[in-house]
Amino acid sequence: MSTKIITWRVIQGSDLLFVNWGSEVIVYNSLSGETHQMDVFSATVLEQLMSNNYIEEALLNDICRLYSLDNNSENQQLIALIINNFDQLGLIEPCY
């Protein structure tokens, strides 16, 4: 049985506002009215998802290139965790 590959995008209709305070970033989601706090790396992942729809692997590739990171299993797990968190927070959604 094959695992279904999900393409992720920022939730349609949301307008995300970013405020960078050193190592921490505040993100306001105008659609939900909620305010989120995250580290700079997570915020960069979210901004990348705002620019394109991504499957996890392509997102990992682009982020690793952007940050000059190794495309290894550790970073793969990190991206998977961030995607899961964004999904839980209602910041991103699958697109079909």
């Binding site: 306001y28 305010t35 706090q37």
Partner: peptide, 22 residues
């Protein structure tokens, strides 16, 4: 960032004001 959250939870109408409140 801590202050933003403290004020957001302290305000009577932060969520109601939407983007303006933020």
């Amino acid at each position: 960032p801590y202050v933003v959250f403290k004020l957001a939870s302290n305000a009577f109408n932060y969520e109601l004001m939407g983007r303006t409140g933020f």
